[in-house]
């Protein structure tokens, strides 16, 4: 496939249709000399990943306890459901104009990523609680287990696989959101920002380098979480992909 691409690109000789060779040299160039603003490629990646981890971390820190709580107290959730659920259908990108007005810098990015990560994690925890088997609760209650014990030793182990699954979905959404958020500006650094800078200069090879990196980094994060799942949930038949 790469070969076909290379041959096709060489045939066309258009600067807007770079071949794999052009992209590779653009990559090498970015690694060696940094981007047009003088930021190294690693600094760009680092900035994006840093924002991702902050926003994603916030999404998990709020999403998991709230999901568990709402799952355990269904009546509370039924009452606030009509207020909470519509937010799920507003794509994080649709929040960008508001985020630009309300926040600056890291806070803005963190807010947008948080929105991307929160709902998948929250929903996974909420739904997971419903899967707790009454018999598993009963096993511990017979021995006089406290509510806290049931939560930490029965509910949490049951829900954890769902939460990890939600985290993988949330991480994907969050990562896509960060790139979109960086496209809107506000900072001179970040993979999305770098992409805009080069696209404005019509330097397509660098744009494609950024695209490939975004894809690979997302994939890498997903694989890390999958490995974590495989390790944590070795008590299950298998971890489904």
């Amino acid at each position: 496939m790469l070969l076909l691409w290379q041959v096709g690109a060489a045939e066309y000789r258009s600067p807007y249709l770079p071949g794999p060779g052009d992209i590779y040299s653009a990559f090498v160039e970015l690694v060696r000399h940094g981007d047009i603003l003088g930021n190294t490629l690693w600094a760009n990646i680092g900035a994006s990943v840093y924002r991702l981890l902050i926003g994603f971390g916030l999404g998990v820190v709020f999403g998991v306890p709230l999901g568990l709580l709402m799952g355990l107290y269904k009546s509370v959730y039924r009452n606030i459901r009509a207020v909470v659920e519509p937010f799920r259908f507003i794509p994080p990108i649709a929040w960008i104009p508001l985020a630009i007005i309300l926040f600056t810098g890291l806070t803005r990015y963190a807010f947008l990523i948080f929105l991307g990560a929160f709902f998948p994690v929250f929903t996974a925890a909420l739904i997971g609680v419903a899967r707790v088997e009454p018999i598993h609760r009963k096993v511990t209650l017979v021995y006089g287990a406290s509510k806290v014990y049931v939560l930490t030793h029965v509910v949490l182990p049951t829900v954890l696989p769902d939460i990890l699954g939600g985290m993988r979905v949330g991480l994907g959404t969050a990562w896509m959101t960060i790139v979109a958020a960086e496209l809107t500006g506000g900072s001179a650094i970040g993979l999305g920002r770098m992409m805009v800078n080069y696209s404005e200069l019509l330097r397509i090879p660098e744009v494609v380098v950024a695209m490939v990196l975004i894809g690979l980094i997302g994939f890498l994060f997903n694989e890390i979480l999958l490995l974590l799942e495989k390790y944590l949930f070795r008590w299950r038949w298998q971890v489904t992909l």
Binding site: I135, V139, V142, Y143, G144, T158, F233, W235
Partner: peptide, 28 residues
Amino acid sequence: NISFVFQEPSTLPWLSVRDNVAVGLRIK
């Protein structure tokens, strides 16, 4: 100190055999 053996499978799937047997002892 009450123990209960249920009709349906009641082992906790995330615990090993050893930890399943220890559940009551640990709660106590």
